[in-house]
């Protein structure tokens, strides 16, 4: 631990705790997941940054969406995201969740992931190198420090709009709404 950070630890221990324990849900979608095993194992060792993969969404607060998202995967992503406890951070990894990437005219791949769930940050590239994950993580630290990584708050506030978009893509959802707030409900 950096000694210069001690002041920060006393000032806002919750923020510092969030920063250094980003537990990533081990959710594998698309081809980008192939970058994750070297990142979490000895070659790049993500635990230096406090990032470890965990098995269930209930234990995690970082959601890396690693690659293209088919309509069927979107359903699983939404369910996983809604199960994660707050504060939670999402990072879109690769160009496919950003704007479709090479699947821009695919019949079954959603193009913009941020229409359906809020995203804190993007890692562009096809594929991004494992180092890019650490750049994203350190950037996320900065955002958390400055109080800007508030996508989960946005989700809560605009849940109605998000839910409407999700229903447009997936048809009727077979789980009840998570929140009653948001623009779509009124």
């Amino acid at each position: 631990m950096d000694r210069n950070d001690i002041k920060k630890w006393f000032k806002s221990p919750d923020k510092m705790g969030d920063k250094y324990s980003l537990w990533a849900i081990y959710f594998c979608t698309g081809c980008g997941i192939i970058e994750i095993p070297p990142v979490i194992t000895a070659r790049w060792d993500a635990e230096r940054f406090g990032v470890i993969p965990v098995a269930t969404p209930r234990q995690s607060n970082l959601f890396l969406i690693t690659g293209y998202v088919s309509v069927k995967t979107l359903r699983a992503i939404i369910r996983t995201y809604e199960q994660m406890p707050e504060p939670k951070y999402t990072v879109g990894f690769g160009s496919c969740p950003i704007n479709g990437g090479m699947y821009w005219d695919s019949y079954n791949t959603i193009k913009h992931l941020d229409k359906y769930i809020p995203i804190d940050g993007w890692i562009a590239g096809c594929m991004p190198r494992p180092e890019a994950i650490f750049v994203a993580v350190t950037h996320l630290w900065t955002l958390i420090d400055q109080g800007k990584a508030k996508a989960y708050v946005k989700y809560r506030e605009k849940y109605g709009l998000y839910r409407k978009n999700q229903e447009m893509a997936l048809g009727k959802l077979d789980w009840p709404p998570l929140y009653t707030t948001g623009g779509g409900n009124d």
């Binding site: 821009w104 005219d105 695919s106 019949y107 959603i110 193009k111 913009h112 941020d114 229409k115 809020p118 605009k158 709009l161 998000y162 978009n165 447009m168 893509a169 623009g183």
Partner: peptide
């Protein structure tokens, strides 16, 4: 496929624009 993407995926608005 392109028309399908235009008619379906592109019709779903961004949350920011919707407001």
């Amino acid at each position: 496929t392109r028309r399908y993407v235009k008619d379906f995926f592109d019709q779903i608005p961004f949350v920011e624009n919707k407001e």
